[in-house]
Design a protein around this nucleic acid. Structure first.
Lengths: 122, 122
DNA sequence: CAGAATCCCTAGAGATACTG
DNA sequence: CAGTATCTCTAGGGATTCTG
């Protein structure tokens, strides 16, 4: 691939779109938690140690907006809201497996590269 | 996968590590441009329309630090510096193809989902 | 040519308190 | 229970200027 081709591809690049959609600090974790079964708001809050209500709600809204998550409200008292990943999100996750493998295989290399680089900067 | 399993996986999650490494605004584009041949600093600057020198240098340094890019200095006058993606980065990119396919296939769905969601918020 | 240094501004994210 | 509403802080990123 030439530099120009790379540039053109990067502009409307599908990969960039995927990354943008999933780059949030909690997005992947929340999707992973809702892949196989509906999960309630409070369950998610407990499953994500350290997340604030604000970020939980914001991330859920974004995922719902992008069609990666469905939000189902049961109008009971007290209210009950369940979140479930869509087929689209499940399919996305199958493609993430390749990346996961890469990360696992190259983790030592990366750590070493970072150490060497840091050392070379004194 | 249970909620707890998803949580545990998300903590030291390899996927999160990959995303963190590639989530920068210009990282993927720069890697793509240097995949097949060494590219000079100025060539990169011209190939990435809109990038500032600051971000170009910062992104290059991060990629170099993570072992995804090599930086070769030719001590000539004027100086000449070439950047080239490593094998590690090239292998990473093969795994990005799956994501690219997903993005291309689901682009219409996502656009529609966003439109419907926006509409439903009045 | 290939950067380093500086200033600034905004979006992402945390903490806390309030509510249908 | 499942959210809003504020306030705040930091890091990512842009614009501009300086230099070996």
């Amino acid at each position: 691939m030439s530099v120009d081709e790379a540039t053109a591809q990067s502009q409307a690049c599908p990969i960039v779109q995927v990354i943008d959609r999933v780059a949030g600090k909690w997005s992947v974790a929340i999707l992973a938690a809702t892949l196989s079964e509906p999960v309630r708001y409070t369950e998610l809050e407990q499953a994500m140690p350290g997340i604030s209500r604000r970020m939980l709600t914001l991330t859920l809204r974004n995922l719902e907006r992008d069609g990666l998550l469905t939000r189902t409200v049961y109008p009971t008292i007290p209210p009950r809201v369940e979140y479930l990943a869509t087929d689209s999100a499940r399919e996305l996750f199958t493609h993430l497996d390749g990346l996961t493998d890469w990360a696992r295989r190259h983790q030592p290399d990366i750590i070493q590269a970072v150490e060497e680089f840091t050392a070379s900067q004194q």
